[in-house]
Design a protein around this nucleic acid. Structure first.
Lengths: 172, 172
DNA sequence: GCAATATAGTTTTGTCTCAAACTATCTTCG
DNA sequence: CGAAGATAGTTTGAGACAAAACTATATTGC
């Protein structure tokens, strides 16, 4: 049986797939139509975030810069004594997502926990000296990547950030 | 043993956590600092996309509108005969991600495949009548959700889309 | 003070995604 | 024509994430 996915088979007609193209690098010849998706904010947000993430990984693929690590490390640095829950809100991820990241960072002795006398359920986080050094390294890579995005958006950066913050705060 | 994550235990000092707040709805009292993350495009893209996605789910949580389904259904509608590979590019996801979505849609008889005579490795996709009906339903919900985002960004929408498209096309 | 409830963190489960490996077909070129 | 490489789709494996269930500690109300 040769069914592709889990359905019927037969054979029929073909669709054209490739067209010639000008040498213009700005020209974006698509072989499909986006239809109503064409001007949807959510759709484009996803695509843009995805593109940004992919570029990030490509740039840092050589180094061992995990995207999660950097934000957490950076946030702990700027908020010494921060708790996991606050950290999760700051980084925009669920608290359960933070646990394995912290475990990783602890295992590598980049952060340390200090108990809270006032609340034994929680604890305070801070960078070790090793963590500070690591953050410094990572920051260079991250800045380099950010430069790419900054160049792409150019002068529109403040406007872009303004709108994104608007979306972020309006929906929460 | 009572170690929190996989490390040492002790007990020490506390951090303040909650502050009073004005009644101003626009006021955004954060109990942490974003540090250098404050003006990073990638970081804000992720947060915004996440917020948008969450709002989407909340709005459509009652209906069974999976975010993946809608884009694929919509794209097939606007590109009858589209192949899975082109579909994956159009929806901005990896081709391997499309397979299970199509399997789902096929199982529910919302789409159908027609073989390509010119290339037996591939096949053409189109909506069934049921698929067209389902798409129509979903479109209403999706439009409603999009209205929310549209309201939030207001007049800045064209500018936002312009920048997002710029990022998308520049990074690919 | 103590039961009822709320909260911080962790664990578990399920979903979504990409990337790499794999199969089948197609194309190229000797 | 036939081997070598490219391409379409699927499968498998791993990582990131959220949500719900769970544990331990705090807080609240009687």
């Amino acid at each position: 049986m040769t069914s592709r996915i889990a359905a019927s088979r037969t054979i029929r007609h073909a669709a054209p797939e490739k067209a010639a193209q000008t040498g213009d690098p700005a020209t974006k010849p698509r072989d499909f139509s986006l239809g109503p998706l064409e001007d949807r904010i959510g759709f484009h947000l996803r695509l843009a975030q995805n593109a940004s993430f992919k570029a990030f990984k490509k740039k840092t693929g050589e180094a061992d810069l995990k995207p999660g690590w950097f934000a957490v490390l950076s946030l702990i640095h700027d908020n010494p004594g921060i708790t996991p829950l606050v950290l999760s809100r700051a980084s925009g991820r669920d608290k359960s997502t933070i646990t394995p990241v912290l475990r990783d960072l602890l295992r590598n002795h980049l952060i340390e926990q200090k108990p809270m006398p006032a609340d034994k359920r929680s604890y305070m986080l801070s960078l070790t000296d090793a963590g500070k050094g690591r953050l410094k390294e990572l920051t260079e890579h991250a800045m380099e990547h950010d430069r790419v995005l900054d160049e792409i958006v150019g002068d529109s950066k403040p406007e872009l950030l303004r709108i994104l913050r608007l979306i972020i705060s309006s929906v929460d």
